[in-house]
């Protein structure tokens, strides 16, 4: 879907965006937060549903926490931040200065409502920063909803079904680094055909210069 040049440009852009989100988060939780997006992919739902398509880094099976936010106007879609439930709990703990290992983690039931609030805010900050910058890049004004947090259980066979609504998915593999803890999640931005063409056209323009 993306040629290597486009992919590089997009990866670099997105890393700047999440860098800003990281600095917001650092201030909020009073410790250094590093966010990195080592890989960006643009795929279609068909590709995602195709069994041959390998999504090794997608933490999409089992219990997951999904935070999703709609954005709209001309550039339109839905952005998701997805974590495996155990990692979400580690993230909350790390934000509150409590450290634990994945092994200590008995199960995701340890996630209480106040923890969901923390995840809601974290995902809000990150998705706002990323989407806001996409808006700036495309020079368009976006409207945003607040994120909705869900705890989902997805079996292997269902794992792609949350993607079905939209046609194109921009996958940002994201890793959080909070002092001792590394947490992996993924940002998925589901975009309509028009929005994707617009984004790619804009990237191409950038590459021409």
């Amino acid at each position: 879907m993306l040629n290597p040049l486009q992919k590089d440009a997009l990866t670099e852009m997105v890393n700047v965006y999440v860098g800003q989100a990281a600095s917001f988060l650092s201030e909020m939780v009073n410790q250094k937060v590093i966010l990195a997006v080592p890989e960006v992919e643009l795929i279609t739902v068909n590709e995602a549903e195709n069994a041959n398509y390998n999504l090794p880094a997608l933490p999409l099976a089992g219990h997951i926490i999904s935070s999703s936010m709609r954005f709209g106007n001309d550039f339109k879609g839905k952005a998701f931040l997805v974590f495996p439930a155990e990692e979400a709990k580690l993230l909350v703990n790390a934000c509150m200065g409590e450290y634990s290992d994945l092994e200590d983690q008995q199960d995701f039931c340890g996630l209480l409502d106040t923890d969901f609030d923390v995840l809601k805010e974290i995902s809000n900050v990150i998705l706002n920063a990323v989407m806001g910058e996409f808006g700036n890049f495309l020079d368009t004004r976006l409207e945003y909803s607040l994120p909705e947090i869900e705890l989902l259980y997805l079996s292997e066979s269902e794992q792609k079904s949350i993607l079905e609504q939209d046609i194109y998915i921009l996958l940002l593999h994201t890793s959080f680094l909070l002092s001792k803890t590394q947490i992996k999640g993924v940002i998925m931005i589901a975009l309509s055909m028009n929005s994707v063409s617009w984004l790619i056209a804009k990237i191409d323009k950038l590459l021409e210069v």
């Binding site: 106040t114 609030d117 923390v118 809601k120 805010e121 809000n124 900050v125 909803s145 994120p147």
Partner: peptide, 8 residues
Amino acid sequence: SRFCSSTL
């Protein structure tokens, strides 16, 4: 829009 949690 922005949600600010009491925990943080």
